[in-house]
Structure formats: C-alpha cells, structure tokens
Amino acid sequence: MIKRRPNYLAGFGSLVWLFLVGLPLYVMLTATFQSRSGYAENGPLALPDSFTLDNYLKNLDNTESGFGQYFLNTLIVTVCVVGIVLLLVPPLSYAIVRSRSRLTNTVFRIFLLGLAIPSQAVIVPMFYVISKAGLYDNLVGVILPTAAFAMPVCALVLTGTMRDITPDLYEAMTVDGASPRRIFFRLVLPLSRGGMSTIVVFSALQAWNGFLFPLVLTQSAETKVITLGLYDFQTEHGVDTPGLFAAVVLSMLPILLVYLFARRALVQGLMGVGGK
C-alpha cells in the first residue's frame, strides 16, 4: 500500500452518518434504564438521572407480559426453519452443481426467479392454503412458508460455495469408486462449511425477524412471535416507551450474540444475498 494523506471530507461524512445511526440507538438504550415518568419528563435526549432495570424485568415477568411465551415461539419457529433449510438445501445445491440433468437446471432457474417473489404478494393465497390445511393459528403454519421463502437465497449461497470445490477432488473420489451419496457426505459437506454457516445465519434471521406471515397466519397469544409482540406492545401501551424499548433490546439480543460470535458468517451471508 502506498501511503496517502487522510481523507478529511470522508471522515466528516462518516461521522454525520455515525450520528444518524447512533441517535435512535442512544435514545433507546438510555430510555430502557429510566422509569416511565422519568423518560416523559427528561425527554429522549437527556442522560438518565436514575437507573432502573424494571423495564427489562417487567418484560421478562410472565405474569405481566407474554414475552417469555413469544420468545419461546420465535425460538421454535427459528429452530424448525433452520432445520428444514439444512435438510433440504444442501442436497439441492449438490444436485445443481454436479448433476448433468436439464431438470435440475430448470429447478435452479425456478429458485432464482423465486428470489424475487415478494412474500407480501402471496399472503392471501398463503392464508387460503394454510387455512385449508388446518394450520391456521398454528406455529407449523408459520414455519413452512417462512422456510420456503428462505430457500432461494440459501440455495444460491450454498451453490456458490459448492462450485468452488475443485473437480479434481470429485474425480479422485470417483476413481475410488465412491457413490454420489458418499461424495456428498465425505467431500461436499465438509468442504462447504462456510456456506452452511451462512445459510444457517440467514434463515435464522429470516425466521427470527419474520413479521408478515405470523401477522396473517396466527391470532392467539399462544402462537404469538416476538415481532408481533412488539407490534402489539406499540399499539396497546403507546405511552410506555421505556418498556417498549426494553422489549426491542431483548428481541435483538440473540442476533447480537450471533453478530459477536459468528460475525463472519453473518456478514458473508448478507453479502451473499447481494450476490456477485
């Protein structure tokens, strides 16, 4: 690298953006440690003059809010969606990369088009299908479409990863007389760990943050997921802002943990979505 003088203009611009990104996060975090009346009196920008954890405890207390239940529901949905994706997408990508059949190629093209099917556009028929299947207001009815709509991106990302495996390795295993199945488990899966962690993170994010399918396909408190909980919270107790903010912080904690411990997979996943 050749040495250059620092770019002051860019530095200034980046600080402006930092302010815009940071402002609501600052308001949110400081408010969660204030009492409701304190927030109303001091306003959103003031530093808190008192410190309390009540807002978090209130949310975690099952007798006062259903947040524990919502958390559990979201967790169930997320684990199942990731499970379905992990079960179905790796064989699919393997076939796309290695199969010579035209049918597989067609399937790949359909998945690529599926990238742009907006889930909003099909909520009405989805509501119809899920109701007909007797899965309305049932977590299964949320899990299935969420997994289906996460699949195109996952297929694209994992196919990209599997393409990077050199043909020599396949040939070597073929010479040894390995079946496609053996090659899949012994060669392809171990060598696509990067892509696998990416699709896990991506589908988990989709499930954890999903809003529209749960909104349309569930209604009772027993099947409520965390995003719906936030929405309700806002419409019901419009004024308890600190409590609401604490709920937002709690809802993002698991993702924050993923960000801290699997940052690479998360970033790669999001970049993979953008595609090359």
């Binding site: 079960l87 179905l88 997408v89 064989p91 699919l92 393997y94 076939a95 796309i96 290695r98 199969s99 010579r100 059949s101 049918l103 597989t104 399937v107 359909i110 699949m151 297929a155 396949y170 040939e171 295993m173 073929t174 390995a178 496609p180 199945r181 090659i183 899949f184």
Partner: peptide, 13 residues
C-alpha cells in the same frame, strides 16, 4: 457414476 441425479433436488423442489 459420481454425479447425483435430479432426485437429489426433488425434496427441496
């Protein structure tokens, strides 16, 4: 011999 058939893509499809 070493190539998977389209059956591998079937469940996801």
């Amino acid at each position: 011999a070493s190539r998977p058939g389209s059956a591998w893509a079937a469940p996801a499809a």
